[in-house]
Structure formats: C-alpha cells, structure tokens
C-alpha cells in the first residue's frame, strides 16, 4: 500500500522545542476535546462538547462552525489530500465533510456504533476508515461508498482508539484495560496482541480507569507508542501520572516508558505525536512535553494556560496546535520557519 500523504506545502522549519512560544490563540465558547490540522496546512479543526466542529483558517483566524453531530465530538481525521474531514462523536456517528467548502455540510453520515464512537483513524491511502466504540467493536469502512468492510470483535473491554499501521493495511486498536490488538485489515482477523496493562487501572470491581487513549507510530515505523496514565493512587480524585509506553514493532518487545519526572503533574497523556526528527511530543495537562530519541524523561516542558486534550503538528513541522478545556485552540511554534 502506498502512503499518499502529500508533501508539506512549505519547507519544514527548524525544530527547536526549547524555543517554543505561543503564536496564536483562537477561542470558541465550548470546551474542546480534539483537534487536527489538515495535511495542506490551511485549516485547524477542533471538536467541541457543544456538538460542533470549529474550523479556523490558519492564515486569517476566521472561524466556521460545522454542525451535524448530536453529541460531543471526540475524534477527527483527514483524508490524505486534506479535502475531506471525518469526524466521530458520542452520538455513535461518523460524518464526512468537504472541508474546503465555504460552509461545510455533512456529505455522508454513518451510524457506526451503538453508543459512543470513541476512536477514528483514516488509512494512509485514504481508502479506509477505522472506528471503535462502546459496542466493543472495531470496524473498518470504505471511504468510497461508506460501506462496512470488516467488523472485529476481540477486545474484552472498551476499545478506545484505533490507528493504521504505516505502509500497511493493518490496524491496531487499544482498549481501556491496556490491550492492543493488531488486526489484518484485509481479513479482519487478529494478528497479534501487545500487553500494555501497566497503563490501566481499576476502581474496585466496577470501573476500569485509564487505558490506551491514543496510539501513534514513530517516523521510522519501528515503534508503536501508546499513551495514557499510570501510577494511579486515587482514580476518582484524578491522582495519576502521564505516561507513554512503546513497543518494538518488529519484535513486540516493550521499550522503556516515557514519563515526566522533572515535574510532578496529575495527568493523562491524551495524545503524543512524533516529529519527523524522532522527538516525541506529548500533551500532559497544561504542559507540552518533548522526549528525544526514546529518552525516558522530557528534554523540555512548554507551559500553556489551560488543560490540553489533543494536539496536532502542522505540516511545517514546527507549529503545534492544541485543543484546550477552555475552548481555545492555541498554536505553539516550536522553532523557526
């Protein structure tokens, strides 16, 4: 399978985390749960708890609402060419939007899951979308016609997130108790499992806590990194530490966990992304952490004004957009252009 991700529209900037500074701050009036930058670098979009998606034009800061969901908008993903936005929400629906339209309207709405849709990922060739939800299922959909291709059962607990394997049709899904399953996207069959139970916790016999909230692959495709929390001492009070846990993709062996030891923060690492240089960027509460070369601790922490629930890197490779609890999308320039 060819990776059709387009080249960055502008030459990459010089990445320097320690020079990170905020360059933009755009506000919405509802809390934001997720954000993505389109692959052409023109827009940043964010999902909100007022059921809308907000689109900001990066050049101007102009904001446009996308209305169609009927519950919190939890996940976003772009087609590789940046023309289509796919959104997933707690209404169990996935909606496809022509993001280039002046006022985007739902192009296709699919009831993907019974209950919440929790995870969504677009394949690297743009032909497929994976979702997971409260019905305990992982599903693969065709972007061409919206039809269901595969429906996979196998997670004993709620699956939280999905991700396509780079350069492959395969898929990984992670659940609330720390199980990662690799699926063959061609046959929808289980290929292997990864045990990340260390980043899951449990409250009595009633409620799991933590689990895999996000997954990503390193740029060299050698590491699968899952993020979440560990060292939970009081779950209902939120006492826990953020963590990223990686596996050697070829062997499946666990690699040293990445934490934030230079500052004690009660946090979940809601997302980590890799810079092409190999530096991992993770959001931990109000901070953005940078881990170089698989080091276990951060080389730098950049503070922001509010809790962060998602982030995405602009194609220029230095601008990091973050979605915040206060309804703002902020951009942190991590270097120079």
């Amino acid at each position: 399978m060819n990776d059709t991700t387009p080249s960055p529209p502008t030459a990459p900037g010089k990445f320097d985390p320690k020079a990170a500074k905020q360059i933009s701050d755009w506000a919405h009036d509802a809390k934001l749960l997720c954000c993505r930058v389109d692959p052409t670098g023109k827009y940043v979009v964010a999902g909100a708890i007022d059921y809308t998606i907000q689109r900001w034009e990066i050049a101007t800061g102009n904001k446009t609402p996308l209305v169609g969901h009927e519950n919190w908008v939890r996940m976003l993903g772009f087609s590789p060419d940046g023309s289509t936005l796919y959104s997933g929400a707690y209404d169990g629906r996935m909606i496809a939007w022509d993001i280039t339209a002046q006022s985007p309207k739902p192009q296709r709405t699919i009831q993907t899951h019974q209950g919440w849709l929790r995870g969504l990922a677009v394949s690297h060739d743009g032909h497929r979308i994976a979702t997971c939800g409260n019905d305990m299922l992982v599903k693969i959909w065709s972007t061409a016609d919206g039809k269901l291709i595969h429906e996979m059962q196998g997670h004993p607990y709620l699956p939280y997130c999905v991700q396509f394997v780079p350069g492959s049709c395969d898929l990984v899904s992670g659940d609330i108790m720390g199980l990662v399953i690799q699926w063959s996207a061609e046959g929808g069959t289980k290929v292997r499992e990864f045990d990340a139970r260390e980043i899951a916790s449990h409250v009595g016999d009633r409620a799991p806590f933590g689990g895999i909230v996000n997954m990503t692959f390193s740029p060299d495709k050698k590491r699968l990194t899952v993020t979440g929390l560990h060292k939970c001492s009081n779950a209902p009070a939120g006492n826990r530490r953020a963590v990223a846990m990686s596996f050697d993709w070829a062997s499946g062996e666990k690699l040293p966990k990445q934490e934030c030891n230079q500052k004690e923060i009660d946090a979940t690492m809601w997302r980590a992304v890799y810079h092409p240089s190999g530096t991992m960027i993770g959001v931990i509460e109000k901070e953005i952490g940078f881990w170089e070369g698989g080091n276990i601790d951060t080389v730098h922490l950049a503070a922001t004004p509010e809790h962060i629930f998602d982030c995405d890197l602009h194609p220029n490779q230095v601008d990091l957009y973050t979605a915040h609890f206060d309804g703002h999308v902020r951009c942190l320039r991590c270097g120079t252009i």
Binding site: R206, A235, A237
Partner: peptide, 13 residues
Amino acid sequence: HDGWDFHHNNFEF
C-alpha cells in the same frame, strides 16, 4: 454502594 466521588473522569466512571 461505594465510591461515587468523581471529581475526575465523572462521565466514564
């Protein structure tokens, strides 16, 4: 039925 003090993660709990 104990443990309903969800200052954190209220909805999941």
